[in-house]
């Protein structure tokens, strides 16, 4: 095995509370994100992505106090996204102990932030994130503000802009699959990872270890998921969990 693909739990928060949505709606309260991170330490997870899903929508600053508290417990690579609009905010987040920032809604207005941030902090620390929705005709569009606002720029064109601006990774989230346990949108992963030379992190829909494997096979460099790591099963009984190391290794192609 030449490369160990990362398996990344995503924790979605509404300011300070850990929640989980289905298709970006119906947030279910899970608990305190710090407890989840402590369990992920014990499980030795590859990396954690923390997303504040209401910050941009509410036009709110990241909750620095809570982020710092969570970071103090995170002994793994740690990324944060939600409500980030400026270089000052990015610098502040790094000073709290974050390794990577995830930029999403801001890219619709200011894609240049990627360029500015990656030239100062290095592209490895700048993750561009896009939320993609497939319509009934099978056409993909990008949405921002937690799936509230549709972006006019077509998907392939936007991806080129993001890559050209110097993003280190693309975090690709499928709105239709979010929280559904139906598996990743493999066609979307295939298309996008073929078009980009930066690593693609797939997210949205994973319901099993087999789904994680399929995501890697389709071309993702890393697979991210939320529901399967915070719920026991599709019935959504809460259980913070993560596969053991042998299983994680088996996911790499």
């Amino acid at each position: 095995m030449e490369y160990l693909n990362r398996v990344i739990p995503v924790l979605t928060i509404a300011s300070s509370k850990l929640v989980k949505t289905v298709e970006f709606n119906k947030p279910k309260y899970i608990g305190d994100p710090i407890n989840a991170v402590k369990i992920f330490n014990d499980k030795m997870v590859d990396e954690v992505v923390l997303l504040d899903i209401t910050a941009s929508r509410e036009n709110r600053e990241p909750n620095y106090e809570k982020i710092q508290e969570i970071c103090g417990e995170a002994f793994m690579p740690f990324a944060y996204g939600g409500g980030i609009k400026s270089l000052d905010q990015i610098e502040k987040l790094f000073s709290l102990g974050i390794e990577k920032v995830v930029l999403n809604s801001v890219l619709a207005e200011n894609i240049d932030l990627i360029h500015k941030a990656s030239s100062i902090f290095g592209s490895q620390s700048i993750v561009a994130s896009i939320d993609v929705k497939k319509n009934i005709l099978g056409k993909y569009s990008i949405y921002t503000q937690s799936a509230k606002k549709k972006l006019k720029t077509p998907l392939p064109q936007f991806l080129k802009l993001v890559e050209g601006a110097g993003a280190g990774e693309l975090f690709l989230n499928s709105i239709n699959r979010d929280g559904t346990f139906k598996g990743y949108d493999l066609e979307l992963i295939r298309q996008i990872s073929k078009e980009l030379s930066i690593p693609v992190v797939a997210c949205g829909g994973a319901g099993s270890v087999e789904d994680l494997k399929a995501g890697i096979k389709a071309g993702a460099s890393a697979v991210a998921a939320s529901s399967i790591f915070v719920f026991k099963s599709k019935n959504r009984g809460i259980l913070i969990n993560y596969p053991d190391w042998n299983t994680i290794q088996s996911i790499s192609v």
Binding site: Y3, L4, G168, I198
Partner: peptide, 11 residues
């Protein structure tokens, strides 16, 4: 072809 730069991840 397969291995990207940067080398990012666990090893």
């Amino acid at each position: 072809q397969e291995l990207k730069i940067p080398h990012m991840g666990w090893n």
